[in-house]
Structure formats: C-alpha cells, structure tokens
Nucleic acid binder design. Structure first.
Lengths: 229, 229
DNA sequence: CCTGGAGTATGGTCTGACCATACCCGGCAC
DNA sequence: GTGCCGGGTATGGTCAGACCATACTCCAGG
C-alpha cells in the first residue's frame, strides 16, 4: 500500500490556493492579498490556519504584513528571498547539518563565477561600490568593521554579475557566516594580505580579465581560510 | 527618530528562544523540542503563537511535526533545506521576480562546478545512479518521464560533488523549474542530442576529465535551452 | 505469551473574543 | 474656506479554551 500521503493540513491547502491565485490572477509584487478574515471565509478554514499559511509565505519572503488600514496595510506581495535563505543557512549551520567547508566551497564557486561575469561585463561598476568598500576597509578599526566592509566589497561583485538569484544566495551565505568570518580575520591578525587580494580582484575585473579575476578570488579565499582550502 | 523597530511579534520571540536553545543546548538532528503546550507556558505566550513559530521552523526545514505519541511524535529537529529552497524559488518565479535566464545561469554554474568536482573524485559513482538514469531515459515514453530521469541524472552529479549545500540548491532549482524543463523537452521534440550529451558528461566524469566534463555540461545546457544561452 | 482495548500525550483545528495600529472622514474651531 | 482633531472602522496580533485525530503505552484477559 505504501504511500499513505496523510491528509493535507488546513494551512497547506491555503498555501496552495494562494499560490494558485498568484499564478492565475497574475499578481505582482506590490499587490495585496485579501484580509485574513476574508481569506478564511473564502477557503472555509479558521483564521488561525490562514495565519499559519501567511507566516509561511512571510518566511519565504513572498508577503509582508502590516497592521492598520490603507493601501499599505494587509498582506502585500514582496520579494525578498535573502532573509529566508539566511535563516535557512544559519539554522543549518547551528544544527551542524552543514559544515563550514561546504559553505566556503559554495562561496568560492559563486565568487569565481561572479567575478568572471563581472569582468566580462567590465564596463559598469557605476556605483563605485567596490572601491568605496576597499577604502573603508583600509580605515577599519576592528575585525567586525573590516568584515562589514569586506561583505560590501564581495556583495558588489555579486551584484555586478547581474544575476539576482546568485546575489541572493551570496547575501545569505555572507550573513550566515558573518561570525565565522570575523573570527577568521581575528585569527589572521594582519589584513594586509586580504587587502592586497582585493586590489588584485578589483583590477582584474575592471580590466576585463575574467580568468585573472577568478584566480584572484580563489587565492583570496585560500588566504582568508587557510584551514579549509 | 528614524528606526522605530516595532515591538517584535510573539512568535518571533519564540523563534529566537528556540534558536537560542538549539545553540546553547547543542541540540542535534533527531532531538525533540518540547510540546507546543509546554513551550507556550515556558515562554508565556499562547499556543497559537508557538504554532506560528513552529510553522516557520518547519518551512525552513529545521523541524518536522508528527502527531500522536512516542519517540517520533512532536516537533523533531531535522535538516531538509531542499523543500524551503524549492518553495522559495517556485514562488519567486511565479511572482516574476526572477527570470528563467537567471535560474538557468545559476544551474549552469552549479553543474559545471559539480561535474568538475565529481570528475576530480573520479573513482566513486558507487550507486551507478548516473548510468541507471541514462538507461531509464532511453526507455522514457513521455517528456514528463524523460525529465524525471534527467533530474535523477543531474542530481547524481550534484551528489557526487560531495557538497550537500550545493546539492540542496540544485535540487531546489530542478524542482522549481520542472514544468519549464518538460516544456523545453517537448519543444525540442527529439531527445537524441540530450542523451548524447549525457553520455559525454558521464564519460568525462568517470575518466576524471574535469575540464571536459565542465565543457560537456555547458554544451548540454545550450542544447536544452537554446533560447537562453 | 499474545492480543485487544482503554488511557493519554501529542499535534491539528476551530471559535470567539479582545487589543494595537493606522487610515478615513466628518465636524468643529478659527 | 481652511485646518485640525477625534471617533469610526478595517486590518493584523494575541489570547483562551475547547474539541478532534492520531498513535504510542500499558495492562487486563485469554
């Protein structure tokens, strides 16, 4: 007999219906969902079940709830995948179901790819975010501060890749491993090597040297996490 | 005054406490959380709020709830990040906040990397999962069936990379784009090119040819999604 | 020793109430 | 007429308590 496939829970039904409505009605970011009470009546479930479904959607970064009244109130469709990914990774690391090695390897894969893409596009770098982050790192007074600007530097590369999915994953990775990165910097003591790496990466990208950028990224991570690579 | 930082909601407090407990008590996968009623009393919130928090954790793939009694009942810590990632991607695609191009590009990045890693490890492929999937694809009678085994083939590569995070992301990607993949196969009509690609990828990996495996993967995706690459 | 049913702990769901927030709008003061 | 101010109201946030469904535990009886 095998697959029992237990009766779906009420909130799962709500989830399906809402998802279907998003697809069928062509709802976009910024549109509003019906109120909790209204949704409950339409789907013949209790408001509590509707709320559980909305909580799931909120966790997935698909809706954002605001109390009160007016155009901004209620459950509004949004799109912020980062927070969900971050929570996911942080908890997975907390549960030791992922090793830091796996996270760093993933980061290496993403950063090599992003740097290559960014170098191929070459031109843009309109915001000058990478340069600004590099300057801020020079002036950083603590490991925390240094890492903060380091994240900004690497996120600028991910943004320059032009792929929002990869950018979101990268953001989540960095957020989840922030503490670990700070410890790594403290352990390292001198950040001179890292800053020099950044200069090389930046130079390779702005000069359009994709292969050089990828190699520089690889060397950089090896310097930052010698215990892993 | 700027940052109001509205009062945290009750379930968010529960979330924090549970997360803290996981870290402090060193809880591992398989351990159980207190019952909903007990948690509600300990944290001085209603059971509804506890349930909303648990629903979030379940969404993130951190706990799994089972009714009834006994060792397997209650909220058990698990680790299945795939489902959360899948929902996230599926909804993001539904909301058009991600394009298929971004998803395919990400897939290309992951598959190239996985194939390279798998080739470097070379030896294993103990389960013969790749070969089995290839045989099943030969016998497939419909696009749906073909894609199902195609997913199995590519997941076998991701598994062979040895990185569970990347494997989880890959699983989510394939699940979220299943429908799109089926349509692509139907549009293509003849799967001969794809099957030949699979053979080349498999041969490169088993012979330890990392660069060849990566190139074969790139060619494969270009054949499958000519409109994008 | 085995078997079956009562007991019970757990999640799943519903109801109905009340609070907090924030817009909307009408009326009042100027 | 203009402006402010306060009630009305729709929305999410929270709670308490009840009942149902499920599945293990344990003990009585064969």
């Amino acid at each position: 007999m095998a697959d029992k496939a237990r009766r779906p829970r009420a909130f799962e039904e709500v989830l399906l219906q809402v998802e279907r409505r998003i697809a069928d009605d062509g709802l976009r970011v910024g549109d509003r969902l019906p109120g909790e009470r209204q949704l409950a009546e339409q789907l013949q479930v209790s408001r509590a079940s509707v709320r559980e479904a909305l909580r799931v959607l909120e966790t997935l970064g698909v809706v954002s709830s605001q109390a009160g009244r007016g155009p901004d109130a209620g459950a509004v469709l949004t799109s912020r995948p980062d927070s969900a990914l971050t929570g996911l990774l942080r908890l997975s690391l907390g549960l030791s179901s992922l090793t830091m090695r796996e996270v760093i390897d993933t980061r290496l894969m993403i950063e090599r790819w992003s740097a290559e893409q960014a170098a191929r596009r070459a031109a843009p770098e309109p915001s000058g975010a990478m340069g600004e982050a590099m300057r801020a790192m020079e002036a950083a007074g603590s490991a925390e501060e240094f890492v903060e600007h380091d994240i900004a530097f690497h996120m600028a590369i991910a943004e320059a890749s032009g792929n929002r999915l990869i950018e979101a994953v990268m953001r989540a990775l960095r957020d989840a491993m922030r503490r670990y990165a700070i410890e790594a910097v403290e352990r390292l003591g001198d950040t001179g090597v890292l800053r020099e790496d950044h200069r090389r990466i930046h130079a390779a990208i702005t000069s359009g040297d994709a292969a050089g950028a990828a190699d520089a990224v690889t060397a950089h991570l090896a310097h930052a996490y010698p215990e892993l690579l």
